[in-house]
Design a protein around this nucleic acid. Sequence first.
DNA 1: CGAAGGATTGATTAGTCTCAACGCAAGTGG
DNA 2: CCACTTGCGTTGAGACTAATCAATCCTTCG
Lengths: 216, 216
Amino acid sequence: MKTFAPREDLIREGDKPHVVNLVLEGWAQRYKQLPNGRRQILSFFIPGDLCDANVFILKEMDHSVSAVTKLTIAEISRTDFEAMMESSPRISQALWWKELVTVAVQREWTTSLGQRTAYERIAHLMCEMFIRLRTIGMTADNCCEFPLTQTEIADAAGLTPVHVNRTLQQLRNDGLIDLDHKRLTIHDFGGLMKAAMFNPTYLHLEREGAHLDGVD
Amino acid sequence: MKTFAPREDLIREGDKPHVVNLVLEGWAQRYKQLPNGRRQILSFFIPGDLCDANVFILKEMDHSVSAVTKLTIAEISRTDFEAMMESSPRISQALWWKELVTVAVQREWTTSLGQRTAYERIAHLMCEMFIRLRTIGMTADNCCEFPLTQTEIADAAGLTPVHVNRTLQQLRNDGLIDLDHKRLTIHDFGGLMKAAMFNPTYLHLEREGAHLDGVD
DNA sequence: CGAAGGATTGATTAGTCTCAACGCAAGTGG
DNA sequence: CCACTTGCGTTGAGACTAATCAATCCTTCG
């Protein structure tokens, strides 16, 4: 068990991976930095997420991971991880499932960046994070923590912070959300999903309970 | 073994997955269609690629797959696939490796769409496909097949066909490439990589124990 | 030979970026 | 406890990349 301060790096591009990280508390983010200095945030991790199942198969990390908030993680060694995988087919299947969902989410982000407008992208990110947080019981009614700065939203959505700011104002004016002091309130989830063209299929929630699919 | 005509669908979003597809000959593409009609191409498959390892763990496909060219594939049943996985740790590790590379590629596409310009995105796509084709021996000198229409390049790069056309002209005028009759020639690979900010690390061409596979 | 899909070109517009400044709030050191 | 610093959010003006709309040309192929 290990803790990190907000914005501290856990893993840097180029590192030789040697453990699997399991998030226990807080948010983390995966990102890539380009030679021209621009940064793309590739995914967010919340409690229960594995940073990279089985990474030690790879020679070198192709991305970095940093804490968003104060962060607590468990490090799982290669031997422990492999023992887990072999201990039962059900566990190894669950790990495969986690990995398949991770790719599915990455594909959806690709789709967002390629086809959605700024407004739609931000709405989509909010839908995704809200649902993911809800499945781990970290929402209260229509509220959740949303500890990202506008610059981080920008780097995740492929936009500039200035444009994120203006777009958030639109989302607020349209009565869809409120975002203040790192706290997100969704006033009209149906409307937000519609605006984002959000379809939760890609999160493959079925096995965790259909009751969570009921929206608002 | 099965064949498909160019542009024919192998798998449709919403299908219940029941086999793993292995590409034997030709190119295929994974894509997603949004309610507003826009399409994002998410990845290309070339010979040797698995369309989706272990997909049958999921209840429902969240994307579609179609042939780009005339296509030949092998269908691997769930039982056969699982038998393969259990037959040896080296095989199951190789399959994990394939999957990890798939996610890594997806992350790089996310980065392209979020942070690279039109010019850089197209250059990057060409670098990636050229290297992947080279590792399976499907390049000759600095040439390879590149069977995409400009509309397909556009849907992969998050651009319009018109803009792809103009950008290709720039790439040609800059002396980096030629693309004609579905045949790509790279005149200056170093320059193309530089323009694309292309770093092949994410393809993880080296992996632990790869030399034991007789692959490569 | 005609049809159809793909590539190309031109003119205009929209969405987002860039640059620059300013405000506010929280944390820090004196 | 106050002044200073710093990071984050907000606003405005102008520039630019890429989208849109629309027409034309070129290939390929039945």
